[in-house]
Design a protein around this nucleic acid. Sequence first.
DNA 1: ATTAAATCCAGGTGGAATACTCGGAAATAA
DNA 2: TTATTTCCGAGTATTCCACCTGGATTTAAT
Lengths: 135, 135
Amino acid sequence: MRLSTKGRYGVLAMVELALQYGDGPVSIKEIAEKQNFSDSYMEQLFSTLKNAGLVKSLRGARGGYILARDPEEITVGEIIRALEGPIELAECIDGGGNMTCVKSPECVTRGLWKDISDSISNVIDNRSLQDLLGK
Amino acid sequence: MRLSTKGRYGVLAMVELALQYGDGPVSIKEIAEKQNFSDSYMEQLFSTLKNAGLVKSLRGARGGYILARDPEEITVGEIIRALEGPIELAECIDGGGNMTCVKSPECVTRGLWKDISDSISNVIDNRSLQDLLGK
DNA sequence: ATTAAATCCAGGTGGAATACTCGGAAATAA
DNA sequence: TTATTTCCGAGTATTCCACCTGGATTTAAT
């Protein structure tokens, strides 16, 4: 059970923006070089992060990205959810599912998946970018 | 972020064995029909579960599988780990990784991934098959 | 003894997802 | 005007998932 590179790269990239928060925009090229990521792939992730309202962009030469809010106001949970989608271990939890789980009410594992999801959310929604830097 | 069918089907299948614990072996065919799973796929999962020591098999006609231990002695964590592998959100945690994370010591996200893994483990290692049935 | 029911085992397979790449268009600072 | 950057849509190689196939072996029932 592993997070995809979207989530992992994304959090690292946002940490980079947090480190330079207040110093003007940071370019994708700079972040990609520093973290040794592919910059065309980074471009995609930042497009998603921008649509999610977590970063702002400045186009043109000497442009780049800045955090949309203070580092203590952005949680890891927001970043991960933006890039990886919602934290549902199984889809039987909220009514959107169309799998075998028609017998949702009597499903003995439903509560289990929910408890796991909740415990994950509890960690990632209570940790800000500032927390990652600070501790 | 979702569990694969291995983990989901596996836990459900083990619940089925727990329900009939003490009544002799249960065949794959019976479980697959009840839960509407593919039986050839189930076969694979049970092979894994057997190698992990979670079930015992009885071959031949009227054969099938039984839990290797009492339902309260088997945790969801054992089942999920057997089928899905270890719970590591990123591989930088224990020294086995060969990814970009050469800078593991100064990596600010390492602690984060570990905290998430630990919180998942805390749920799944403390819930037995009996718990799933009982509550 | 024969048959039917079951596990065992090794591999194959189609489709989806992942982790990217590519080729430009548009915006902006120098 | 040029270099640098974001923006955007599409393409692509590889891997993984969720199975299937075709047997061989074991055992209970007849």
